[in-house]
């Protein structure tokens, strides 16, 4: 979830890494825990993870840059991940993206009120009820421009 994150501090970062279960003292789970707690992976956290796991900064950086979902800057409070994969294309995803780009933000962009990030995703497992999107952690399907707007309003209210 993109919201309810706290600002990163050296001490909180340290504490969070200490809480990692023994078998998750690995680079990817550590990065995921940091992102979950603070909303993104700050530069300082990379060095901290390297020390905590006894690996090089380059190793941590390598993992951080590999995965599409890991971020090095804070996201907007609402993330709309729109499915752009084949089954949703067949059901009208390309047209939905055109609408979203014109009215909210282009894929990869942020809305002018800074509340919403629009990202693309390849399949959400809702391929019989496309077009689909994940708004923070809520899956929505059979999307039209209107139902997407409605789901977004719900997300804004929930903030």
């Amino acid at each position: 979830m993109a919201h309810r994150v706290r600002p990163w501090t050296q001490a909180d970062g340290q504490e969070l890494l200490k809480l990692l279960p023994y078998d998750e003292r690995l680079i990817l789970p550590a990065l995921q825990a940091v992102q979950q707690g603070f909303g993104y992976v700050p530069k300082e956290a990379v060095a901290q993870i390297a020390v905590a796991l006894n690996v090089s900064v380059a190793d941590v950086h390598g993992v951080l840059t590999y995965y599409h979902e890991l971020r090095t800057t804070a996201s907007a409070p609402i993330i709309v991940a729109i499915c752009v994969a084949e089954a949703c294309q067949a059901a009208g995803a390309r047209e939905l993206i055109v609408h979203v780009s014109a009215n909210l933000a282009p894929v990869g962009g942020r809305s002018t009120d800074d509340q919403v990030d629009v990202v693309e995703v390849f399949c959400l497992g809702n391929c019989a009820l496309g077009p689909a999107a994940l708004i923070n952690e809520r899956l929505v399907g059979r999307l039209t421009p209107n139902t997407l707007e409605a789901a977004l309003s719900d997300a804004r209210v929930a903030l």
């Binding site: 994969a85 084949e86 089954a87 949703c88 390849f122 399949c123 497992g125 809702n126 391929c127 019989a128």
Partner: peptide, 12 residues
């Protein structure tokens, strides 16, 4: 990981 578009059986 069920990454294929058009698949959702693992999820279900």
């Amino acid at each position: 990981d069920e990454g294929d578009s058009g698949t959702f059986a693992d999820r279900m």
